[in-house]
């Protein structure tokens, strides 16, 4: 009688262990795919910003006759991001676009007529909102990577991760230019 009970209990425990192992593996696959999905979500917003740039340049051209260099920088950055194929290149291009936009909006301060233009203010607002959303989505991407990296190193997941060849994934880092100290000078 006791033997039968022990066999059933052991059988259930073994079955439980198998299911548990499968659930760990499935979980690892999910978190790995979450990373790719998070990055795709960043790219969706980058694409939206990318589509807004020509409209912005077109509006600015009407008022900023003497700022060709600034406008061309935006176009160059946009073209570069279009041709970027690797994640590193895309990251660099993204940094260039952000930098060019910063300069453009700073220069726009000198053109009151441009600032008063409804289309410009609408585009500026939309691009700023997209910038914020891109930053949020990058955070989300980093969190996805972090969850995955922790899981593949944690016991008991580590055994299955190693056996199945799951490898660490890199976090997104801001371009070095964005991390430089900002020089602020006050006019006397």
């Amino acid at each position: 009688m006791t033997g039968a009970v022990v066999i059933v209990v052991l059988g259930l425990l073994i079955l439980g262990c198998i299911f548990y192992g499968v659930s760990i593996y499935n979980g690892l696959v999910t978190v790995k795919n979450n990373i790719d999905k998070s990055w795709s979500n960043v790219e969706v917003l980058l694409k939206q910003r990318h589509d807004e740039l020509p409209k912005l340049v077109k509006v600015c051209e009407r008022y900023m006759k003497h700022e060709r260099e600034t406008l061309e920088r935006v176009i160059r950055a946009r073209n570069f991001s279009e041709s970027a194929s690797t994640p590193e290149e895309r990251g660099k291009a993204d940094g260039m676009v952000a930098e060019a936009l910063k300069s453009l909006f700073a220069v726009a301060e000198r053109y009151p007529e441009l600032k008063a233009d409804e289309q410009f203010s609408h585009l500026q607002e939309r691009i700023s909102r997209l910038e914020n959303e891109i930053a949020d989505r990058r955070e989300l991407y980093n969190e996805s990577v972090n969850i995955y990296n922790i899981r593949i190193e944690r016991i008991p997941d580590v055994f299955i991760a190693r056996a199945m060849g799951f490898e660490k994934r890199p976090l997104w880092h801001a371009p070095a230019s964005d991390l430089k100290d900002v020089e602020i000078t006050f006019s006397s």
């Binding site: 548990y20 999910t30 959303e133 949020d136 989300l140 969190e143 972090n146």
Partner: peptide, 20 residues
């Protein structure tokens, strides 16, 4: 319930402004 626990652990917390 184990699956629910794993989902809670695995899905990163998003901000509402940029909700995918």
């Amino acid at each position: 319930l184990l699956k629910q626990k794993r989902e809670v652990e695995n899905v990163p917390t998003a901000k509402l402004r940029s909700l995918p």
